[in-house]
Design a protein around this nucleic acid. Structure first.
Length: 334
DNA sequence: CGCAGTCAAGGAGAG
DNA sequence: CTCTCCTTGACTGCG
């Protein structure tokens, strides 16, 4: 908020990016203060291995006490804050906050009043995020299935999504909650219909944060686009899932389709295939050549914030920042 | 990085 | 219906 340039629509196609270069994009961005500053942000998932503290610590259910929940969540949030600071000083401006931040947050056994007890800490982390224009996402685990055929699974999923929205609300940040379509039981048509029904159960404050991601087994980009038409929710393209499960669209076509579902800068998930493993296995470290090709492909279509789903997390994020710097796609920072 | 087994939670497929 | 496997990453107990 301190930067007077924040939120100003840049009419030129030259956009300054965070990595000391400018990239030419055919932009049609709308005014949006929280994301207007850095068109390309690199992100990674949940925690940082090299810093020596964890933002995704948890414990076994049998050890659950109210004190333990608060203690672990406080530690996670303090670590998150330090990680975000480290990220900013390394030009990494996108982050996926761990769903483990408050362990067992939506579990019926958890009676801790974490929303009250962590209010101050959450606000503090949120201020840092806003002050530095960080882009934030969250990704609930595989057990969050709002189109399940079992009522109790849908109900638990709604509670879990509620927790994610609470966390972001208490931080006071925009933040996307990305989920998969879920169960394909009875065929995709029925699965999509169940999704629409499940989604309608969500209150607005949760629903407005949801984005849907193509998966590697059942629901393709096309299926997600159907949900965008029905519900208006944005679509996150996962390039590796798309490689394994799609209707054959090339990367730039696929990205173009996904991009149209976003009002502002779209999020994408990026990974590459781990060599020698089964199709769909995420790389253990960034394949720089593959990543360079990826950026070239999608930047022909438009800007994006890129979440790296690569196992060595911040190490690959640093590499990705270097790759962007080394690319001859723009001018040096003025 | 020691390693193997275990862990709140679902789903798909086989039998 | 039950059972196994899929899949991810972290925890935990053991050597």
């Amino acid at each position: 908020m301190s930067d007077e340039l924040s939120g100003i629509e840049l009419t030129s196609t030259q956009r300054r990016v965070s990595h000391g270069i400018s990239v030419t994009f055919p932009l049609k961005l709308k005014f949006n203060p929280s994301i207007a500053r850095d068109p390309v942000k690199i992100g990674y998932v949940s925690t940082n291995y090299s810093m020596g503290y964890k933002a995704d610590a948890t414990f076994r259910l049998k050890n659950l006490t109210e004190e333990k929940v608060i203690e672990t969540a406080s530690s996670n949030l303090n670590c998150l804050k330090r990680i975000l600071k480290w990220n900013v000083s390394n030009d990494i401006l996108f982050f996926r906050i761990s769903s483990n931040t408050v362990p067992f947050a939506s579990h019926p056994m958890n009676t801790a009043n974490w929303k009250e007890e962590l209010r101050g800490l959450l606000k503090e982390v949120g201020s840092f995020i806003r002050d530095h224009y960080l882009r934030i996402s969250m990704h609930p685990g595989q057990f969050t299935v709002i189109n399940s055929e079992k009522r109790e699974v849908v109900e638990a999923s709604v509670r879990e999504l509620e927790y994610h929205a609470d966390l972001l609300d208490l931080m006071g940040v925009e933040g996307v909650i990305q989920i998969h379509v879920g169960s394909g039981s009875g065929g995709k048509e029925r699965g999509l219909a169940r999704f629409v029904r499940g989604f309608s159960l969500l209150p607005e404050r949760i629903a407005r944060r949801i984005a849907v991601e193509n998966d590697d087994r059942i629901y393709t980009l096309r299926d997600c686009l159907v949900l965008n038409r029905e519900l208006g929710i944005p679509v996150i393209l996962d390039n590796l899932h798309h490689q394994v499960n799609s209707s054959g669209e090339g990367l730039s076509e696929a990205f173009s389709l996904a991009r149209e579902t976003w009002r502002g800068t779209p999020m994408t998930d990026y990974s590459s295939q781990e060599p020698g493993e089964e199709a769909g296995v995420h790389a253990s470290t960034l394949d720089e050549d593959d990543f360079r090709r990826y950026v070239q492909e999608i930047s022909r279509v438009g800007d994006a914030d890129i979440m790296l789903e690569i196992r060595d997390k911040e190490r690959s994020a640093l590499k990705a920042v270097q790759v962007l710097r080394s690319m001859k796609v723009g001018k040096s920072r003025t």
